[in-house]
Design a binder for these strands. Structure first.
Lengths: 202, 202
DNA sequence: ACATTTTTTTGACATTTGTCAAAAGGATTC
DNA sequence: GAATCCTTTTGACAAATGTCAAAAAAATGT
């Protein structure tokens, strides 16, 4: 069956979700919403499709309202190592690369097929210059990223692997049920075999 | 010998350092500098004095022009675990707590005696509301924090302890020479004994 | 300069986690 | 639904790291 574009109202739906998301932590005027809206493009992403790739700059910021993304890189042995997950609704990009313009250190991969909104870095910079309210959203988003990183860092440092796993189960039950074990294992900093044994011993 | 306040021009010196630091990545108008200046207070910190303490909210952001800070928390066994270092010149706070208002998860400790500038959270919020240029500084600082966290996270996940240590030596030689080994060890996620043995084998 | 405290190193041993190889189990595609 | 691919589990063993106790070295306070 040939793929057909989703109806116009589905486009409006994800945009509505975007502004609802932003409204949780900031207020944008009608003008600002309009300005942001004009610079968004829609994109369909397939399962396993990349938003960012190692060693290439990433100059796109996306918003998604369903599915989730995995961050990973290749270690010294060429093995994939998962460093993070981001769940909808959320903004996603290879953050350091997007900010600095340097090549991305990580791969960012869609884990499910989904519809997303895309914003180019250059467009976002212009919006920052023209609309203080949007710059505020930028600040708040940066703060959220920083906070998430601090939490993850403390999770990794905090204690032994089995305690990290239990803690993850408590705090993010959604992880356990949707994400393949091998990815959770490397998120926890252990191998899939070790995680499997930990689960056997409850 | 009784402690005497530093002369007025030393106060001006650290303020000059602050604006020089900010100028590296943003531009503040005279008005904005003036507004920020008025809400800064000076404080002397002793070696090992705390800027933030576990389980207490931290509502101060400080700027220092010399020395460095250590971030640590207590693990399940009550042992100290070092999670980060910040070197002058830089802003420092218990970031998540400062942003969210929640109790700090970490301790933030001055590692040397130093003179700092203090800004209260409430004052900073007011500045954000009144001066878009200062809000921009806030955004850029948040981005820097997020980037530093991503780098640290990847360092931890990236490979075995000895490679992490070599990499740290390459990228931050200052760490090795100023910071006690035991703190570097827990920054790397290993015990002091393991680090000591690694160093023996070059 | 001395006494005290803190930091670093060392050894012996226990424990955790990784590695490799293979099988079992699930999911996906044609 | 058969074939294929991907994920998870298991076992045997190796390697890395932790733990505990003690000594050596360095830094600090008076």
């Amino acid at each position: 069956m040939q793929w057909t574009a989703p109806p116009r109202d589905q486009y409006k739906m994800i945009e509505a979700a975007l502004f609802e998301y932003i409204n949780q932590f900031a207020h944008l005027t009608e003008t600002e919403q309009q300005a942001m809206s004009e610079l968004l493009t829609r994109r369909r992403m397939a399962k396993k499709e990349m938003l960012a790739t190692e060693n290439r700059p990433c100059n796109e910021l996306i918003f998604t309202n369903n599915g989730y993304f995995r961050f990973y890189h290749h270690d010294a042995n060429g093995e994939e190592e998962t460093s993070d997950f981001y769940f909808a609704p959320t903004f996603i990009t290879s953050y350091t690369s997007f900010i600095t313009g340097e090549p991305s250190m990580v791969n960012v991969q869609a884990m499910e097929a989904m519809e997303v909104l895309v914003k180019k870095k250059v467009d976002l910079q212009n919006l920052y210059n023209q609309h203080p309210g949007i710059e505020r959203v930028g600040r708040l988003l940066a703060e959220m990223v920083a906070i998430a990183s601090e939490r993850h860092l403390l999770l990794l440092l905090n204690q032994t692997a089995d305690k990290r796993y239990k803690r993850l189960m408590d705090q993010h039950p959604q992880y356990i049920n949707t994400i393949p074990m091998q990815y959770i294992a490397s998120y926890l900093g252990i191998t899939r075999e070790t995680l499997s044994r930990m689960r056997r011993n409850l």
